[in-house]
């Protein structure tokens, strides 16, 4: 039933995206041209990649607020290495970015697992620490386009079968997560841990370890995005992607990933990210102030959450009432 409901929920989100696009089309027909839509997708790719990682974290009843700081630190490190040693091959830098991100994710995960600190506190802390690190290593200076090697900057923009590599990476990540969530024991355990942690324990699933793995996945994707981001915009500084973690969480929430854990889907997170991406890209071209853009994102989050709690009311509320009484 929930699956069916989720499907219909994704359908609603898809309809909302179509309606939004149609509305934009009436004002600015050029927006729906395939080339432009591909541009919007490419622009939304970092958000999509990060939303996949955030999704598994949220599925296990955690949250990762450090993704944007992780992204910025990984991006800064590879940019500085590239500036200092332009000869180091790009695949090596890419692997380094992913590895660094995974290490930062594992710090989050281990703190949550071994010390049992609430995830929101852990990642709020590491978010600030990782940002602080960027300042320490860069001393506040920027790495600019002319300091980066052409190979470094070109990879995300390189054309492959008509789409930039950045878009292809997002597509591959999404397909990978589809496989992970539907066809692997690890994917199942994310749902089990968030859906009923007590039952998961009795099933032989290590709850803390599963949450830690979710953080490592989220961190690794943040590291990957760190390189892509810095290379695509050809600049690295302390504040890149500042506040982007909120967009990532918002994409998941709009996409129907339950903040209470255990419910969600790859399709939902993808559509949530696309919805935000379209809003962000379309509003400037139809001449709506960026402040409206924030209001629309915020409104979408609240509608999505109200939708979630409303549809679960029949069960969720009764449980709450019982708990209040027995307490």
């Amino acid at each position: 039933m929930i699956q069916r409901f989720l499907k219909s929920r994704e359908a609603i989100l898809l309809a909302a995206i179509f309606a939004l696009t149609a509305l934009i089309w009436t004002r600015f027909p050029g927006f729906v041209e395939p080339a432009n839509l591909a541009r919007v997708f490419n622009d939304t790719s970092p958000l999509i990649i990060l939303a996949m990682g955030q999704m598994v974290v949220i599925l296990t009843r955690c949250i990762d607020l450090s993704v944007a700081a992780n992204l910025a630190l990984s991006g800064m490190v590879v940019a500085m290495i590239n500036a200092a040693f332009p000869g180091i091959p790009i695949p090596l830098l890419l692997a380094l970015a992913v590895g660094m991100g995974a290490v930062m994710g594992s710090i989050n995960g281990l703190l949550v697992w071994k010390l049992d600190i609430p995830p929101i506190v852990v990642t709020l802390g590491t978010m600030t620490i990782y940002r602080g690190f960027i300042f320490l290593i860069s001393k506040g200076s920027w790495i600019n386009a002319h300091q980066m090697s052409p190979a470094f900057k070109d990879l995300p923009r390189a054309d492959l079968f008509g789409l930039p590599v950045l878009s292809w990476i997002a597509i591959v990540v999404v397909l990978g997560f589809l496989l992970l969530t539907s066809r692997t024991a690890l994917g199942r355990s994310f749902f089990a841990v968030g859906g009923n942690p007590h039952a998961a324990v009795y099933t032989g699933i290590n709850v803390g370890r599963t949450q830690c793995i979710a953080f490592i996945i989220s961190g690794a994707l943040a590291g990957l995005t760190g390189y892509l981001w810095v290379a695509r915009y050809a600049v690295a500084y302390v504040d890149i992607a500042g506040g982007f973690e909120l967009d990532v969480v918002a994409a998941c929430v709009i996409g129907g990933i339950s903040i209470a854990g255990g419910i969600g889907s790859v399709g939902g997170a993808l559509l949530g990210a696309l919805f935000l991406g379209i809003v962000k890209n379309a509003l400037p071209v139809v001449d709506i102030s960026p402040f409206w853009q924030l209001a629309i994102s915020g409104g979408a989050i609240i509608i999505a959450v109200a939708f979630n709690s409303g549809s679960l009311r029949s069960k969720g509320r009764v449980i709450l009432r019982k708990a209040e009484h027995t307490a």
Binding site: I2, F191, A192, G194, G195, N196, H198, A199, A200, V201
Partner: peptide, 8 residues
């Protein structure tokens, strides 16, 4: 509480 995962 400890038996079935109701989301699955």
């Amino acid at each position: 509480k400890q038996g079935a995962v109701t989301g699955l």
